[in-house]
Design a protein around this nucleic acid. Structure first.
Lengths: 335, 335
DNA sequence: AGGGGATACGCAAACGTTTGCGAATGCAGG
DNA sequence: CCTGCATTCGCAAACGTTTGCGTATCCCCT
């Protein structure tokens, strides 16, 4: 059986309340007794019971984190950033991978508030689907910070990168290099990032005089295999674009594999740029030019904002991070 | 304020115990009343309080997971495998990234038992360091399953891949292709996998008549940058090995980058094989031959074993997974 | 109609903490 | 020595559930 405060108390012939005060560093207990209690607790191997503490004090030292896909290094690194903030404060992270599934997200959310998390960090799968649940949770007084993706209806805290600017940088670069026919491998579905990146690509194309035919817009979920398929399809068209934007780090893997299998040379036969810079872009042959985000930094900021909301009841803040372009060797010059 | 069972009870003029029974599907409450209670709970937006439940019932529906590095896809995928088992059972995962730091691991462990996790899944940073804590936790009755790495002293449950066999397969392949001089980029420190892989490489070398000079053994932590350094050092030696084993997926990134920067051709100038097959190996130029593990499967098995321990008090089991060799194009033939 | 068993519900204790309050003890100053 | 205040500690309630037990009610059968 597990050792409790009561056991320590009865062993020392004092009251549990005294033990509690001693161990939690509260005043009202003599130094002599306190030291004796601390020593005994150590000796008996006492671990405080957070469930009891949480019940009594109302906070649990636990934060809920929702990400769409844990095996995507982007989100993994974001979580690492959060850890960096929360670990020193003695907080634990409950991590839920929603697998890009709204119902699963909803179920996870319910579980998390049942676990009495003190705050929520979420990259929602859907830019609308679960807004009622989020709203309800917010109304319960649980602070929420969105990261990477957000739900536009809800005026909650968020930290995202400037997707519009990222796409614009990418396309202006391509334009400068003479590209006028652009294909896009996009994230399927109602995901926030997929939608805004596609939309601003189309807007920017308009502005720059770049052509994006309907059949040059392919999509897939965030996996290698679907991106592979999309790439094969696009490049088997009769008239092909001269450059392709791949809107997601994992999809870049599939695209690269497809290009290799098709024996299509980058950048000679087709140029390639990516959104997000994961481990591999710089090591591919050729190294891929892309828009780099800093997921760890993003997680860090999101965590700080959440902390602010928990402790100081800070009002919701929307943060937008600048994306920066990295030039490598995956884009040809068309004259 | 948050809605409780008591509030529902008083609103309906019944006793809290009845509400509890109704909501948890226990017998002893009429269908009519049960339905009324459920409807009211839904209307009031009731969320069960897991901390209170945990306190009263003694279990919290929470599992603790310890990994050395969340941004390593290997561990991320293992966690995904665990999620696959635990999500359908209504369990939550508390994820701790120890950052390959023993003291941090110890602190995390203490917090986790304080959170009253029902079980522990851990890839310990150290093949010995925190064994006393693990032992104590096990003595408290909290089931533990190690994965990927283990602590040999402790006869607890574990699931690891057959590192010896993996290394042997790799080296026999190199040997068949005529390689007799082998370098190793290894995981530094007292990590389980690093140690056993190096040891079995040396043993196998002995057996096959392969030479591994002391200066051909380089190490680093599990990052690109240190592997980069190690690779540069090894290849600036006067007499170089003809083939290199890279013992870790992230380190492969650094090695590849170094080779490219040094303009060393694989496999013409030096051959390369890796332990663990992450996203990128098959897309590099050339594609890298390697020993593939299945981290998701590993996580899945570890989770199942833990569940068995929790529900059926299963005795500790040691599971060893076969690794399988994937031949690609990174090894030359020496005649 | 009466008896008996099943069913439906209430009562209260318990899980391990924290905390306001009161009581006892200590000490210092007059 | 007495008053008064500060310090140290114990008492008991409270957090939101669950659950064993007791009692009242219902239904069914003879």
């Amino acid at each position: 059986m597990r050792v409790t405060i009561k056991q320590i108390a009865s062993k020392l012939g004092v009251n549990p309340s005294t033990v509690s005060r001693a161990l939690s560093g509260k005043s009202g207990v003599s130094d002599r007794l306190r030291e004796k209690i601390v020593r005994e607790a150590l000796k008996m191997g006492y671990f405080p019971d957070m469930t009891a503490m949480g019940l009594r004090k109302g906070h649990t030292k636990v934060i809920g984190v929702l990400i769409p896909d844990i095996s995507n290094p982007f989100f993994a690194q974001a979580v690492r950033g959060m850890e960096k903030i929360f670990y020193p404060m003695g907080y634990q992270l409950i991590l839920c991978s929603t697998e890009e599934n709204s119902e699963r997200e909803a179920a996870n959310l319910r579980m998390l508030v049942s676990q009495r998390v003190e705050g929520l960090l979420s990259a929602p799968v859907d830019s609308g689907g679960n807004s009622v649940i989020y709203r309800k949770i917010h109304a319960e007084g649980i602070p929420i910070v969105f990261f990477d993706r957000l739900i536009p209806d809800l005026k909650l805290s968020s930290v995202i990168t400037d997707n519009e600017q990222g796409i614009r940088d990418l396309m202006e670069y391509l334009h400068r290099r003479g590209h006028r026919k652009l294909g896009i491998i996009n994230l399927r579905g109602r995901s926030f990032t997929g939608k805004v990146r596609l939309r601003s690509a189309i807007e920017t194309a308009e502005k720059l005089g770049i052509e994006i035919r309907q059949e040059w817009i392919k999509d897939g979920n965030s996996t290698q295999s679907e991106a592979y398929e999309a790439t094969v399809q696009m490049l088997s068209l009769e008239s092909k674009p001269t450059a392709i934007i791949v809107n997601n780090n994992l999809m870049m893997l599939g695209t690269m594999k497809a290009l290799r299998d098709l024996k299509i040379n980058v950048p000679k036969d087709v140029s390639l740029v990516g959104f997000d810079d994961s481990y591999w872009n710089q090591i591919f042959d050729p190294p891929i030019s892309c828009i780099a985000q800093d997921p760890e930094q993003m997680g860090l900021i999101a965590a700080t904002m959440l902390l602010d909301a928990i402790f100081h009841h800070a009002k919701p803040v929307q943060t937008v991070l600048k994306a920066h372009f990295i030039e490598r060797e995956s884009v040809s010059v068309i004259s």
